[in-house]
Amino acid sequence: MSSANQAVVFLVQNLFLLYIYVVLLRFLLQVAKADFYNPVSQFIVKATAPILNPLRRIIPGIGGLDIASLLLAWVLYVAMIIAIFYLVYGQMVPVVNLLIYSVTGLIKTIAGIYLVGIIISAIMSWIPQARQNPVGLLVWQLVEPPLKPFRKLLPDMGGIDLSPIFAILILQFLRMLLQPPYVFI
């Protein structure tokens, strides 16, 4: 692959992933019941509203989950894979591979969002004023659902919270487990 082709693939992939992250953050913040009036939440809502609002009229939520945002993230992931595969190989992706890569890629992206959020929250726990910051508050609200089961399982360690370490281990294991083979049929 030529360097110009690599640059185009890099640009296409990162533009798609940027918006996929925003759409998935909207979904995950709704799952976490994060503060809707937070300035960062408002940015995420406004950035996704033009596409999600019409989709929500067609695709209802199920059990309080915003299925439209998950579907949009998946469709964007599929479009990204098709675009990259076409740029690299000049042909279409086999459907089976497209489904496998898009679903595993979406799960890995969600795990990656949680992974980064947990690391940021662990670092922010050392800064006393971090929870007063809108970003800090939102990060804490985002990572609380995946950390909660670990906090229930682990014994009290005298004020030291080991749940982020175990959550990071599980998330990294999940990401490694979902690494698809890079063989296109």
Rank of each mutant, 00 (worst) to 15 (best):
A34I: 06
D35K: 08
D35C: 03
D35N: 10
F36Y: 15
Y37K: 00
P39D: 08
P39M: 07
V40H: 01
V40S: 01
V40T: 09
S41M: 03
F43G: 08
I44A: 03
K46Q: 13
T48K: 05
T48F: 03
A49T: 06
P50D: 08
I51C: 07
I51R: 06
L52N: 01
N53T: 11
N53F: 01
L55E: 02
L55M: 13
L55F: 13
L55T: 01
R56L: 09
R56S: 01
R56V: 00
R57T: 08
I58N: 09
I59T: 06
P60W: 08
I62F: 14
G64L: 11
L65N: 06
A68K: 10
A68I: 09
A68L: 11
S69N: 11
S69D: 04
S69K: 10
S69I: 07
L71A: 13
L72S: 03
W74N: 01
W74A: 09
V75Q: 07
M80S: 15
M80K: 14
I81M: 07
A83S: 03
A83L: 00
I84R: 09
L87N: 05
V88T: 15
Y89T: 13
G90W: 02
Q91N: 14
V93G: 04
P94W: 15
P94S: 01
P94G: 05
V95H: 13
V96H: 10
N97P: 12
L99H: 09
L99P: 05
L99I: 12
L99D: 01
S102C: 08
S102M: 01
S102L: 00
G105S: 06
L106Q: 04
L106P: 03
I107H: 11
K108F: 12
I110W: 00
A111K: 02
A111C: 01
G112K: 06
I113S: 11
Y114K: 01
L115H: 11
L115T: 14
L115I: 11
V116S: 10
V116Q: 06
G117V: 05
G117W: 01
I118K: 13
I119L: 14
I120G: 07
I120R: 01
A122S: 15
I123F: 04
M124A: 12
S125L: 15
I127F: 12
I127E: 11
Q129I: 15
Q129H: 15
A130S: 14
R131A: 08
N133P: 06
P134I: 10
P134N: 06
P134S: 08
V135T: 15
G136I: 08
G136T: 05
L137S: 10
L138K: 02
L138M: 13
L142G: 05
L142W: 00
E144I: 11
P145Y: 04
P146G: 09
P146R: 08
L147A: 02
L147E: 04
L147S: 00
F150V: 13
R151P: 02
K152R: 15
L154K: 04
L154H: 10
L154Y: 00
P155M: 02
D156V: 14
G159A: 07
